[in-house]
Design a protein around this nucleic acid. Structure first.
Length: 829
DNA sequence: CAACACGGCGCG
DNA sequence: AAAGCGCGCCGTGTTG
């Protein structure tokens, strides 16, 4: 029987039950268990306190002769090891003077969340394993095989059958970087973990030999079921460095994501949570190839072993949730394979325009800085008395300048050279805000130049300097171009949307001088196809909102409808309404209601042709639609009207506007109630495709801000989620119907598909894509039948140039449009 | 020197 | 009483 000490950072308190349950479950209670809480009543531990606490732990360990100590929380961890960071260090035992310390979450932290409690339980089990083993257990029984000669390679080929995990180690994360190398590739079977050194410094293989081996592997892998963890990453590297395309059969990261969108999806984390693994992480530099082959291989073998193990655990979990499994099988997994190709293609950049944009922006930046010069405070010194320059990019310094006062009262900013302007808004943290909305409203001549300065600075650092490290020279059909290869995360959001990074294509400004930098190479065109007003359509469908459904069925633009009903109610913009309607109808007399109806019938485009103000007004209505739909309150509407339109709206007017929205679309009220009560009852809400948004906070019996947040998410998530799934379904179908000789998708932006098309097939692909988007075949698999029509529209040419197909065709009549016939499909039929 | 939080702002 | 949702990236400034 061993002696075990549990050290907590607070008095164990109400969470003690959780800990003792974990101890019972793990079977540690058979041993002598002692508890050591930290000093009662201490809220903050200073350095001295930590030392004291460390001594206290040491003497307790000595007194009780404990060999095993669990450190519950950051404070005991720090007191013993001198390092903080419990989230990184938990579950990883350390040995000191013959005593084994295992860090874990504090019971209070574990009690906060079911997931954390699970982790604590897991860690206590790890402790039990350590006790049973009598020390830190060595790594799992692995059968690591190194492929370093022809004989071992052939042995590996013979062993590759059935479920095979696949993983690679690389020198970095970006496969298109100069000098990026694959160090090892590995396969895990039931029997062994095979490590094939590639560009590792100990690798015996020449490039020629490697190419031949990869070719042989491709042949053997045809008959294997490949399991990966974030296989899109590995396959993209393999595509870029060996030009092979292996199909992912199961991806453990995506499977876990669809089962639990709220938690982390890292391999080690999952292996520890679901397979009882002990963390096998190694130093970052060693992982990037600096470690000797034996060490790197051991690490790699763990990845392979646990990826394969996780496949079985997660497949079982998926079987228990058929709705979610369908999304995984028909959307997520196919997308993982497809996005390898999408990211490999990348987006083509107009380099000439890129350089020109840089020149213009630098000019703007310098001019703005010059204009600001006269407002700069002078003679500034830092703490040591060294002179420093005022930085317009620093919100802290700017707040001092704008809002600082010589004789500041409580809560005001003390600053001798401050202008003492009134604080108009606070940041989340409670400081004086210097946001655009504030700068626009302050009474000071620097405002204009400051905003210009910020705009130029941001565009430069985001889209010019920010893109440069990712720009990759590439030959395309005989010419050389610069491409960006943004990376899409299929697991990037809690709703099912994708996120995008390095760089983020989804945040490219609509400002044409930036957006049109994205284009297509010679002989190709860029098509940008959008699902029109998709979130509103889905919300109307889910809510059964009759007025909105009717509008969609009769082809009325819903933002337009909202706007006109709002104008009708408030009688705002009366003159614009009347004169536009008179010119539209050609009549010389109309009453107000007739005018509204005439505008409604004519639509926003016709109205815009007469008065361009209608465009802005429609935009305003759009924001109102989304805001109120997703739970915005009238106070926020007031702020919105002020910031975006400089209109001051009274409380009564703001309240009336919100009421008017729910009068106009009255079925939303009940839908909101339904979503909230469903979330409260089940702790999740489903989307039409069967994704789940888990909202544990919605179950709270108390009306807390967290529950309110979860309730708003219960309304927004199914809408956002399904909009994204329609887009992905269309994307998959498009790529199934057309070969990549003529169609190359380059990215998605939530409700839009960005695709490069051979210009002579532009018409065919354009027309077909719009058809697919308005009703993808996959709807059948998911048993989805919608009442609301789905529509899509598209533009051709550089992104954001706003050229319709008709316009493009007129300008490109020299390109003879052809029809591509699907030979493969004909053969199948 | 690296990791982190914050403020601000681009997108749907 | 108080209430849009979902992202990523940059510069600044603090902390260890």
């Amino acid at each position: 029987m061993s002696k075990v000490l549990f050290v907590s950072e607070n008095s164990f308190g109400p969470a003690k039950q959780l800990l003792s349950d974990a101890i019972d479950n793990a079977g540690v209670e058979d041993h002598d268990v002692f508890y050591l809480p930290a000093v009662e009543g201490k809220k903050k531990f200073g350095k001295g306190d930590l030392k004291l606490f460390g001594d206290q732990i040491a003497s307790e360990v000595k007194k009780r002769r404990c060999k095993y100590v669990m450190l519950l929380g950051n404070t005991p961890l720090q007191a013993v090891t001198g390092h903080a960071g419990i989230t990184k260090r938990r579950g990883r035992p350390v040995e000191q003077n013959g005593v084994i310390y295992l860090p874990g979450f504090s019971p209070a932290f574990a009690a906060y969340d079911d997931g954390n409690a699970e982790i604590l339980e897991r860690d206590v089990k790890t402790l039990k394993e350590i006790i049973d083993f009598g020390g830190i257990p060595e790594e799992r029984e692995l059968n690591i095989r190194y492929v370093i000669d022809r004989k071992s390679f052939e042995e590996m080929l013979r062993d590759l059958r059935g479920t095979v995990s696949f993983d690679i180690e690389t020198t970095g994360l970006y496969p298109f970087a100069k000098g990026a190398k694959i160090t090892t590739i590995g396969f895990g079977t039931k029997r062994a973990q095979w490590i094939l050194p590639i560009r590792h410094y100990e690798s015996p293989w020449s490039r020629c030999e490697l190419d031949m081996m990869i070719e042989e592997l491709s042949y053997v892998l045809e008959d294997c079921f490949i399991v990966t963890h974030n296989g899109k990453f590995d396959m993209l590297w393999m595509r870029q460095h060996f030009d092979v395309e292996w199909e992912i059969g199961f991806d453990t990261m995506l499977a876990h994501y669809i089962l639990d969108e709220n938690s982390l999806h890292g391999l080690k984390y999952l292996a520890m949570k679901l397979c009882g693994a002990v963390d096998w992480e190694i130093d970052k530099e060693e992982k990037k190839g600096a470690a000797p082959l034996l060490k790197l291989g051991k690490y790699h073998a763990h990845d392979l072993y646990y990826t394969r193990e996780l496949r079985f655990v997660l497949a079982r979990m998926l079987r228990e949730d058929q709705e979610v499994k369908l999304v995984y099988e028909h959307i997520l997994l196919p997308c993982a394979n497809l996005f390898v190709d999408i990211e490999y293609a990348g987006v083509c950049i107009n380099t000439k325009q890129f350089k020109e944009a840089e020149r213009v922006l630098r000019g703007q930046y310098n001019q703005a800085l010059k204009d600001l010069k006269q407002y700069e405070p002078t003679g500034l010194k830092d703490k040591r008395g060294k002179p420093v320059k005022f930085n317009w990019g620093s919100t802290q310094q700017l707040a001092k300048l704008l809002f600082g006062k010589k004789n500041a009262k409580e809560g005001e900013i003390q600053c001798d050279w401050g202008l003492g302007l009134p604080v108009l808004d606070k940041t989340d943290a409670g400081n004086a805000s210097c946001s655009e909305s504030v700068i626009k409203r302050i009474d000071h001549p620097c405002a204009g130049a400051l905003l210009k300065f910020r705009e130029a600075k941001q565009q430069l650092s985001f889209f010019i300097d920010g893109w440069k490290p990712y720009l990759t020279k590439k030959e395309w059909e005989g010419d050389v171009y610069w491409f960006l290869h943004p990376s899409f995360k299929l697991h990037g959001t809690v709703t099912g949307r994708l996120s995008c990074e390095n760089p983020n294509l989804q945040q490219v400004p609509r400002d044409p001088r930036i957006r049109t930098l994205i284009t297509a190479p010679k002989g190709w065109v860029l098509i940008d196809a959008d699902l029109s007003q998709i979130e509103l359509r889905i919300a109307a469908e889910l809510a059964g909102e009759s007025a909105m459904i009717h509008a969609f069925k009769t082809g009325i633009d819903v933002h337009w409808l909202t706007l006109l009903r709002e104008l009708e109610r408030s009688h705002a913009q009366r003159e614009t309404v009347m004169s536009t309607a008179l010119r539209l109808t050609g009549k010389n007399k109309l009453n107000y209601n007739q005018a509204i109806e005439a505008l409604l019938k004519a639509g926003p485009d016709a109205a815009q042709d007469i008065y361009k103000e209608w465009k802005e007004l429609r935009k305003k209505a759009k924001a109102i639609n989304f805001g109120y739909l997703y739970g915005m309150w009238w106070k926020k509407f007031k702020l919105y009207a002020r910031d975006n339109y400089g209109v001051s709206v009274t409380d009564q007017e703001a309240q009336a506007s919100r009421e008017a929205f729910f009068d106009l679309y009255s079925d939303f009220t009940d839908w909101h109630k339904r979503q909230k009560s469903y979330a409260r009852k089940h702790g999740f809400v489903p989307s039409l495709a069967g994704r789940k948004r888990r909202l544990p906070a919605a179950r709270s019996p108390f009306d807390t801000p967290q529950r309110r947040e979860a309730e708003r998410q219960s309304i927004n998530s199914p809408v956002q989620s399904f909009a994204n799934d329609i887009n992905l379904m269309a994307l998959l179908q498009l790529c199934r119907e057309f070969p990549r000789e003529i169609v190359r998708v380059v990215g998605t932006v939530h409700d839009a598909i960005l695709v490069m098309v051979k210009e002579e097939y532009c018409k065919q692909v354009h027309d077909r894509l719009l058809e697919i988007m308005s009703g993808p075949e996959l709807f059948e698999v998911f048993d989805i039948v919608l009442d609301v029509p789905i529509e899509a529209d598209a533009n051709i040419g550089p992104w954001g140039a706003g050229v319709s197909y008709a316009k493009w065709e007129a300008a490109n009549s020299n390109i003879k449009q052809k029809v591509w016939k699907d030979d493969r499909r004909k053969q199948a039929a």
